[in-house]
Design a protein around this nucleic acid. Structure first.
Lengths: 340, 340
DNA sequence: GTAGGAGCCTGAAACGTTTCGCCAAAGGGG
DNA sequence: CCCCTTTGGCGAAACGTTTCAGGCTCCTAC
């Protein structure tokens, strides 16, 4: 059998209350402290956190719901969060909603049933009804990479991110810029698309041609297909902006098949391993992914300690434009015009 | 307040024992079943798994310890495991040991204290002493990608994997093959290196020249530096085998800087997203990573149900050699000899 | 000398389930 | 008709902690 307080009581003669006080950092006389430590060592005692959780109503566990697990973005998120949360004594239960709203609602109930103290979530879409079980039970929720009204959110400035890409391209002389973005149903894509429209209008005085905005599934395949479609237009864009990492990978694959002379300029999203592999060095909008994770963990920890702000809070982080090899963003001199 | 069995008892007049039986799939008369379901719905009742775990001594939680979280290999592992385990009703607590033995021992104690029912681990090194807390408490452990004597393990046939790469290269005429591998302190690297030596000896009748085996830190940087060092040798190899994904990426980056004419043949490891990015299409040893995860989860679930084999078991999975563009493995006709 | 407080300890009652032993009623075979 | 088994239900005792309301000792200040 595994040792419990009762065994420690047997060996030390102290009461359960005192032993509990010891394990919770209360004041215990030095000789008693030593007695307990000796007994615990002899018994190879390990505190039972399940029992503790039942009585104290804190499971010291948080749930993390991601819309997909095997993406580089979310991996980084998990890695940093887990690190920060365990530092604070919390275990991290990870759940994958596979971009499926129903699965997301399921895991939410699952986590609430597991009595997690808090939840961090990258929501599947704008429908926040899956949060109800958590709200009902007063479990704090922090949304990451999505703005969820009425809920703490940690996001990046998506509009400015895309605007910085557009600005680089227009400064280089591009006037016809395409965008690869996912469906408007996710906050991130909606913002990036709106940011694109605004930036293009700002910089060129014109609304972007609608056929240059490719609505796609968010994936490598979507990036491949999308960029090919853009280039088949009768007046193809001279530059393409990718609204996320998957599109960037896909577009890069598709462009690999073109001769370097006929490639459009390309600004991608997210600075991950990819960037080091691809030649010429790509131009990228870099998100502070680690900070996103750390800020979210920090905000949740504040809530768990009961000392966060009164109102739901939105933390917005800035992106960095990482300028790559100039061939990736310059407007090619004449010939491509000549050919059109 | 959150509802409990007592509230259901109040609404239904049934005893706690009956309500418990209902929630554990026991036989309950139809009218009582309906009563309970109605009451639960009215109360928005959610079973408290912490209390359940305390009494039943099953927390329905498993711990997963990875040697690093933000690698594509481990991401895939986590993703599949989490899926399979949650299907079976288990929550997955994830921990990152950051390739640090002490951190690994810490999280092991952390998980045992959290009363996880089982643990899946990709161990940092060969020192299995960190398993003691789990063994002492009868918590089953499954090791993944490492052979841990006396413990259930799910691995791939590392020797055969490397041998298949060597065979392809020798068949194509290569006689001087280099290897990029990590330190012998991890099982995987030791096996792959031994497999390399054996295969080269088998196929060429000679032991590989020792300077062709580059001991390196396992990383993209290591791959870059290693391949550069190999090529600076007075008699550089005509082909290089990479013993893992990081090396493959790094070697690819380094080779990108060479003209296509002077590149050695390259066989990489692991078929992940980036393999689709690289042109010409690389030749790769593909591990069944998802199966690794699923087999491990399955084996642990067996142990948790108490119906696994009596003895610790080792499951070995096979790899597939994915042959890429022929320029990636063919021996280049004459000039490279001429130049040497 | 004593009131009051600080410091440390204690027994007992939670926390919300599961499980054990027992009982009543119903059903079936001889 | 009786005995035996099966089914479903019940009260009460766990599970291993934390927490509550006191209680004892010792010290200080008046």
């Amino acid at each position: 059998m595994v040792a419990t307080y009762k065994d420690i009581r047997r060996l030390t003669g102290l009461s359960l209350a005192t032993i509990s006080k010891y394990y919770n950092g209360g004041n215990v006389l030095e000789p008693n402290r030593e007695l307990i430590e000796k007994a615990a060592a002899d018994l190879d005692y390990q505190l039972n956190n399940v029992a503790r959780g039942l009585r104290s109503r804190r499971s010291m566990t948080v749930g993390v719901i991601l819309d997909e697990l095997d993406s580089a973005f979310n991996t980084t998120i998990v890695s940093r969060m887990e690190e920060r949360l365990r530092e604070a004594g919390y275990g991290t239960i990870i759940c994958d909603s596979r971009k499926d709203a129903e699965a997301q609602a399921d895991v939410m109930r699952f986590l609430v049933g597991k009595m997690v103290d808090g939840i961090i979530v990258v929501p599947v879409d704008d429908d926040a009804s899956f949060l109800v079980p958590a709200r009902d039970r007063g479990v704090p929720v922090v949304a990451v990479d999505r703005l969820v009204p009425g809920t703490d959110s940690v996001i990046i400035d998506n509009r400015a991110a895309i605007a910085s890409a557009v600005q680089l391209l227009t400064t280089a002389g591009h006037t016809s810029i395409g965008l690869l973005a996912g469906p408007d149903s996710t906050y991130t894509m909606r913002e990036r698309r709106a940011g694109f429209r605004d930036a293009v209008q700002d910089r060129t005085g014109l609304l972007p041609r609608t056929e240059l905005i490719e609505p796609e599934h968010v994936s490598i395949e979507g990036g491949c297909a999308g960029v090919r479609r853009l280039l088949r237009l009768s007046a193809p864009p001279t530059a393409v902006v990718c609204a996320n990492y998957g599109f960037t990978l896909g577009a890069t694959i598709a462009l690999n098949e073109l001769g370097p002379e006929s490639r459009p300029a390309l600004v991608g999203f997210d600075n991950m391993d990819l960037a080091r592999l691809i030649r010429p060095r790509p131009t990228l909008v870099a998100q502070p992914i680690e900070d996103l994770a750390i800020e979210a963990a920090e905000l949740l920890l504040q809530r768990l300690n009961g000392d966060g702000p009164d109102e739901p809070v939105t933390i917005t982080l800035d992106t960095t434009l990482m300028i790559g090899h100039e061939s990736t963003y310059q407007l090619r001199p004449v010939p491509s015009n000549g050919r059109l």
